[in-house]
C-alpha cells in the first residue's frame, strides 16, 4: 500500500534524508517493547506488551512518563533506560533482523548523491550495533541519537540537531520514519515526513505523514522521482 508523497516545498525534489532506524532499517520494534517490558518488571512495574508497543519510537524518558510515577521518572529513568538497552542488546542477534532491501536503499540514496543521516531516539550503543549489523557505517553521512539531545522524539530535537550538525538546511531535507512520533517531531519544525508501515503501526496513525509506503525499499523504488 502506498499513498502519494508530496514533493518538497517549491516543487523541487528532496535533497537530503533524515532516516529513523528502528522499524525502518531493522525489524526491532517488538524487541524494544519486550525489553521495556522486562526492564520495567525489574523495577516493579507490570505493563502489557501492547501498551508498550504503541509507545515505541519515543525516546526512553518520554516513553516512561506514561508508566512510572514522577519521583521514579526523575531519579530512575536513566537507570531504567540503561537496563532496557542492556536487555535489548542481549537478544539483539536473535530477535532483530534487517528489513530486506532497506540497507540497499540507503546505499542507493548515497549513490544518487543524497546525504543520509540516521536520526533516532535509540541510544548510541544500540544505534552503533545496528549500523555494524547493517554494514552501513560508510554509507551514511552520520547520525544523531537520544544521547545527543535533551528531548528525543516525539520532540523535534534529533531532527533539528541533524540538520544543524550536517548543514542540511538548504538541501530540502525530508524525514522518513515509521511512527506517529517521527511525523510529529518532523512537523514541529516544518520538515516533511514520509511514513513507512514496516514498523507495524496502523496506517491511520501515520495519516498526517506526507506520504506512506510499505517499507524503505518500496519508497526508494517507487518514490525515487521525489528526490533531487
Amino acid at each position: 500500500m502506498a499513498a502519494p508523497a508530496r514533493r518538497s516545498p517549491g516543487g523541487r525534489g528532496f535533497g537530503a534524508v533524515l532516516l529513523d532506524l528502528d522499524g525502518c532499517l531493522i525489524d526491532s520494534n517488538d524487541a524494544h517493547a519486550r525489553a521495556w517490558q522486562r526492564a520495567l518488571e525489574r523495577f516493579g512495574h507490570r505493563v502489557g506488551f501492547g501498551r508498550l508497543r504503541m509507545q515505541i519510537g519515543k525516546g526512553g524518558r518520554e516513553l516512561l512518563r506514561d508508566f512510572v510515577r514522577p519521583a521514579e521518572h526523575h531519579f530512575l529513568a536513566g537507570a531504567m533506560g540503561a537496563v532496557q538497552t542492556r536487555l535489548y542488546l542481549e537478544r539483539f542477534g536473535r530477535e532483530v533482523r534487517p528489513f530486506p532491501g532497506a540497507a540497499a536503499a540507503v546505499r542507493g540514496m548515497r549513490r544518487a548523491g543524497l546525504p543520509v543521516v540516521i536520526a533516532s531516539s535509540a541510544d548510541r550503543g544500540a544505534l552503533e550495533r545496528a549500523l555494524r549489523r547493517l554494514r552501513l557505517a560508510d554509507a551514511i553521512t552520520g547520525f544523531t541519537c537520544a544521547d545527543d539531545v535533551r528531548k528525543a522524539k516525539p520532540f523535534h530535537d534529533v531532527f533539528s540537531l541533524a540538520i544543524r550538525r550536517f548543514r542540511l538546511g538548504a538541501r530540502r531535507p525530508v524525514a522518513i520514519g515509521d511512527t506517529p512520533y517521527d511525523v510529529a517531531a518532523a512537523h514541529q519544525i516544518g520538515l516533511p515526513c514520509l511514513g513507512l508501515l514496516s514498523g507495524g503501526f496502523p496506517p491511520k496513525s501515520l495519516a498526517s505523514a506526507d506520504g506512506v509506503f510499505d517499507d524503505l525499499a518500496q519508497l526508494w523504488r517507487g518514490g525515487r522521482e521525489r528526490f533531487a
Binding site: 526492564a39 518488571e41 525489574r42 523495577f43 516493579g44 512495574h45 507490570r46 505493563v47 501498551r51 506514561d66 508508566f67 512510572v68 531519579f75 530512575l76 536513566g78 537507570a79 540503561a82 537496563v83 542492556r86
Partner: peptide, 20 residues
C-alpha cells in the same frame, strides 16, 4: 547515581500500571 535495577530488598511490590 542510579544505574541499574535495585536488589531484591529494594524492589517494590509489582504494580500493574494503568493507562492515564
Amino acid at each position: 547515581e542510579f544505574r541499574s535495577e535495585p536488589g531484591p530488598s529494594w524492589r517494590k511490590r509489582r504494580t500493574r500500571s494503568r493507562p492515564r
